[in-house]
Design a protein around this nucleic acid. Structure first.
Length: 466
RNA sequence: UCCCCUGUAGCUCAAUUGGUAGAGCGAGCGGCUGUUAACCGCUAGGUUGCUGGUUCGAGUCCAGCCGGGGGAGCCA
């Protein structure tokens, strides 16, 4: 049975098995037997072992087993007399591998816990059925990401984790330094002298692999990155982490419409795989976390995305205001959409994911391609009910003169972007890509409400215990 | 960073207007002829986050600090 998904397939009554795992519960019958519920994480279900009192260590050890103890059990598979499982193991030996040293204070006994509490015992929460299901879904979805890209001709590019600071556009960054903080080298005008630092310059943890992956896109045509990303923003919400995983594909000879097509095909592909590969875990999320999660995904893979121009989205919002919908923030062309606006569009207005395209240039990044109207850029956001923005993407500005103009307009230093500009000087082509937050995608798939419960060891402001 | 909520047994929560801190689960012990997060009985378990204040009296009211959560902004 041990050995991964499907390992218990083909096992039937009469087979001898050897199982190893952790006790979830023990139930005694003084008729002279105990029932042990054992899980090893290989799938959602645990297995029941029936232990007779004539085992030599029954009184001394078996009856002292509590939730969390690790054991090895050898026995024979048999049809179960009880309800709740078709097969069970009749134990011939139960060997205790590790005791729980104080059952009274074992942090995760077999009972309901709040997710907030379990975050404080993040090293033990994978033993609960919720967090082992999250871990398996995370694995399957990760594998599905790589498989989908591979099957569609994309190459996985490992973009750097440590980046030169001045090539990034977005967000607060975590500094990477080997300098002695108690004895910082200074320049003549008193600034920290980073030329003395390990890399001879300021460096930070990456906030996006996009600029780097564009370079590989303009050589390999279809590429993506999938790795950790870091933002030192003091964001305290259920949708933000200081360390999260991001998927960033980039396609050459492509425009914004191709980009939206890619986002749609990709999301449908990985959700189809998830539904096919993790039915047991998804059934758990449906039954215990979010009734609609499976229906939502099934609908998602069969329906087309709603696509809407920013300008039309604003018109729809203005019409809603005119007919009585109340928003805290006023709506007019040129604003960045607020969370409440995005939520209304995806939850109320269309009731499913929506791609909003062609935003005003003044609220978007310098690298996004300027549209012919000179007022908007070829940017898109994919909004999903319940979590808001899960994808932000754009067609990139491939024209060097326009790119330079945009860099100047935004008061950026053109010399910082010398290699990025080279990509426009040497065989430039239209290209596009997007960033997809992996934990937000998981939140959408499982119905789990907080991204802190979708990554094994979440990093948030003031929290990096594990 | 701002706004709101919150902190009581290992965990989840009660505690009337400010008047003797309680229950369920978990744990220990006992009972129960195959149980399903079993069931029945008994027992143990508390500096009510911390510091100060008001009061005859504070879990309850006030102030500050610390922790947790939700929302906003930023974004993915």
């Amino acid at each position: 049975m041990i050995g991964g998904p499907g390992a218990c397939r083909g096992i039937g009554a009469g087979d001898r098995v050897h199982v190893r795992g952790w006790i979830r519960t023990r139930r005694d019958s003084k008729a002279g037997l105990s029932f042990i519920q054992l899980h090893d994480g290989s799938c959602f279900d645990s297995v029941q072992a029936v232990v007779q009192s004539d085992l030599p260590n029954y009184a001394d050890e078996v009856q002292r087993l509590t939730t969390g103890c690790s054991v090895e059990i050898t026995g024979t598979v048999a049809e179960s007399q009880g309800k709740g499982q078709s097969l069970e193991i009749h134990a011939e030996s139960v060997q205790v591998v590790g005791w729980v040293d104080d059952p009274e204070t074992y942090p995760v006994p077999a009972k309901r816990h709040t997710f907030e509490y379990l975050r404080e015992v993040a090293h033990l929460r994978p033993r609960t059925n919720t967090f082992s299901a999250v871990a398996r879904v995370r694995h399957s979805l990760s594998q599905a990401v790589h498989r989908w890209f591979h099957d569609n001709g994309y190459f996985w590019i490992h973009t750097p984790i440590i980046t030169g600071s001045d090539c990034e556009g977005a967000g607060e960054m975590f500094r990477v330094s080997a300098l002695d903080l108690a004895n910082l080298p200074r320049t003549e005008d008193g600034e920290v002298d980073f030329s003395e630092d390990f890399f001879g310059r300021e460096t930070n943890l990456t906030v996006s692999g996009q600029l780097n992956v564009e370079a590989y896109c303009l050589a390999l045509s279809k590429v993506y990155t999938f790795g950790p990303t870091f933002r030192a923003e003091n964001s305290n919400t259920s949708r933000h982490l200081a360390e999260f995983w991001m998927i960033e594909p980039e396609i050459a000879f492509a425009d914004l419409s191709d980009d939206a097509d890619l986002a749609e095909a990709f999301l449908k592909g990985i959700f189809e795989t998830l539904l096919a590969e993790r039915p047991d875990d998804m059934a758990f999320f449906r039954d215990r976390i979010d009734k609609g999660c499976i229906d939502r995904l099934e609908h998602f893979v069969s329906a087309s995305f709603e696509r809407m121009d920013y300008t039309d989205a604003i018109a729809a919002l203005e019409a809603a205001v005119a007919s009585g919908t109340k928003f805290d923030f006023p709506v007019s062309w040129g604003i960045d959409l607020q969370s409440e606006h995005e939520r209304w569009l995806t939850e109320e207005h269309v009731g499913r994911p929506i791609v909003v395209m062609n935003y005003p240039k003044d609220i978007k990044a310098f690298y996004m391609r300027l549209n012919d109207d000179e007022r908007t850029v070829a940017a898109m956001d994919v909004l999903a009910p319940g979590i808001g923005e899960i994808i932000g993407g754009a067609q990139r500005e491939e024209r060097l003169d326009v790119l330079d103009r945009r860099i100047a307009e935004m008061d950026l230093d053109v010399s910082d972007y010398w290699w990025y500009r080279d990509l426009r000087r040497y065989g430039t082509v239209p290209h596009a890509g997007f960033g997809l937050g992996f934990e937000r995608t998981m939140a959408y798939a499982t119905g789990m409400a907080n991204v802190r419960d979708l990554i094994p060891f979440p990093r948030t402001p003031n929290t990096a215990t594990f």
